[in-house]
């Protein structure tokens, strides 16, 4: 099995002095899905922002065999698709179709090809009815689907999802879960939802104050850290 993510000794300090990441070692195999657990403020989002070089800390990051550096940034961003927690930040174009086509256009596709690809992935996530809609008219579940479509349109090898199920009702969560399970990419899923993690991932990593304090089988980690409220 090949390693798609290999990280060693990652540290990051925000400009205001907060040490958000304090020596992270992490790896992900191709096709594997891993859950990221941890208390609020433990550094999960900060970690995720490093996976495609949006933040640059100390330490080494290798994605699909490429070392993350200025020269490889563009390639790495097309390999790692990040779905952010707040869909409103992710959907910034005036219509759904244009938003999904934004990534492919940046990859250098012709406008026609980009739109064709956008239509295909929108159909794949079940949003074919909303091409011309404006993103702010969508429900939270629909926004999340479009955000995922926008990332899938870049044809990434790794999907990173930051708390994908916040604001979603149980049926919508279920739909999203089956969508995610049908996607072949390796996944990093930041979540507080033990059920989602159990259903979607096999391995889990536990963050605490910018460090990884435990990792292993999802079910075992959930039990070890009492990561359920019942």
């Amino acid at each position: 099995m090949s390693r798609v993510i290999q990280i060693a000794g990652l540290r990051y300090r925000y400009p205001d002095g907060t040490q958000a990441l304090d020596g992270i070692d992490f790896h992900l195999n191709s096709g594997e899905s891993v859950a990221l657990f941890g208390a609020n403020g433990s550094g999960k989002t900060t970690f995720v922002l490093h996976l495609n070089g949006l933040l640059r800390g100390e330490g080494s990051i290798e994605i699909c065999g490429m070392r993350l550096a200025d020269g490889t940034l563009e390639q790495i961003r097309s390999k790692v698709g990040v779905v952010f927690q707040d869909s409103d930040e992710q959907l910034f174009m005036p219509t759904v179709l244009e938003d999904v086509a934004f990534g492919p256009l940046n990859l250098g596709l012709s406008p026609d090809d980009a739109l064709t690809r956008a239509r295909t992935v929108l159909k794949r996530v079940g949003m074919a009815h909303a091409f011309e809609r404006a993103p702010y008219h969508l429900s939270a579940g629909e926004k999340k689907r479009v955000a995922i479509a926008g990332v899938l349109a870049m044809d990434p090898e790794i999907l990173v999802l930051d708390e994908p199920t916040t604001f979603l009702d149980p049926p919508t969560r279920r739909d999203l879960l089956s969508l995610l399970r049908s996607l072949p990419q390796a996944k990093v899923v930041v979540t507080h939802d033990a059920n989602l993690a159990r259903a979607l991932t096999s391995r889990a990593v536990f963050f605490d104050q910018g460090r990884i304090t435990g990792q292993g089988d999802v079910i075992e980690i959930i039990q070890r850290f009492h990561w359920e409220y019942s």
Partner: peptide, 16 residues
């Protein structure tokens, strides 16, 4: 956040 999301999808300073 929006800018991050733009970069994450390959934005290179110019809207096509």
């Amino acid at each position: 956040g929006i800018y991050h999301a733009m970069l994450a999808r390959g934005f290179r300073g110019r809207f096509v």
